[in-house]
Design a protein around this nucleic acid. Structure first.
Lengths: 134, 134
DNA sequence: TAATTAAAGGAAAATTTTTTTCCTTAATGA
DNA sequence: TCATTAAGGAAAAAAATTTTCCTTTAATTA
């Protein structure tokens, strides 16, 4: 824990962002949950910061997104989830419970693009049943 | 054109949906554009149906989605796009102009899932520069 | 430390997006 | 053609997100 928090504080400082308790808590929540949507973050953080404003959560999500500290995962039929930005990986969404899991990225993708198209990044989303729901 | 429209009319009938002019127009717009977001559809359809309600567009999007006639593509940083449901394929999004293109689906994805996870479907989204913007 | 200052927080309002309601209109099928 | 019922339109409501404005506080420096 000491490590992680220090890490986030440094990361924020690097980007010229203040490491406020609310912001750190949001990062810790995303860290702990792996993937969380706005409302989950808000409900969770309210346990520690009773009077935190939902606007603060949104503002922080946006600044953290802009600085690449977190990233958004858009999932079919559900609200966007946010996660701490990390090494590249793919996602698995359980169609029953909605949980998002990180899975390894495919070694290579054999998709042929038309002439003139320049890929920069690919993301894979697998939909299915997770261990619990299967 | 005769073909396509008849096709849609039949498709709607099959699903027990009425083939109204507004609904047909929405399908034609998605067909023509390939991928369109709510606002694009609304702006476009207003040219023919001056007094169409935005609520009608939303309602139709939802019924068409529920019956699997169209599908939603969630794209990072932009509004969702909708397309006529067709054989499986992947998407390429241009990070400059935002245009979405259909690309072939990978033959196979070598992603190892943890024990107990059952994949049903995978979607691949490639982000990069399209021919025009490259 | 104490003082400074710029960024961040909170509350409320404003915007934007989406859904619902309620009544009217029109597509479908007998 | 008529009856039925889904769909359309307008407006309101609800939900989601952003902005405003003022206060507080983290970070910097004297």
């Amino acid at each position: 824990m000491r490590q992680k928090s220090a890490h986030y504080a440094d990361l924020l400082k690097q980007k010229g962002l203040k490491s406020t308790p609310q912001r750190m808590a949001m990062l810790r929540i995303m860290e702990a949950k792996g993937h969380a949507d706005i409302d989950e973050i808000y409900q969770e953080i309210k346990k520690d910061f009773v009077s935190i404003s939902l606007a603060t959560v949104y503002k922080n999500i946006n600044t953290l997104l802009n600085d690449g500290i977190i990233q958004e995962i858009k999932v079919p039929h559900k609200k966007s989830k946010f996660e701490i930005a990390k090494h590249k990986h793919s996602h698995f969404v359980c169609e029953r419970c909605g949980e998002v899991y990180d899975v390894q990225k495919p070694k290579k993708l054999d998709i042929e693009l038309p002439e003139g198209f320049e890929p920069r990044e690919a993301s894979v989303l697998i939909v299915g049943l997770c261990k619990k729901c299967h």
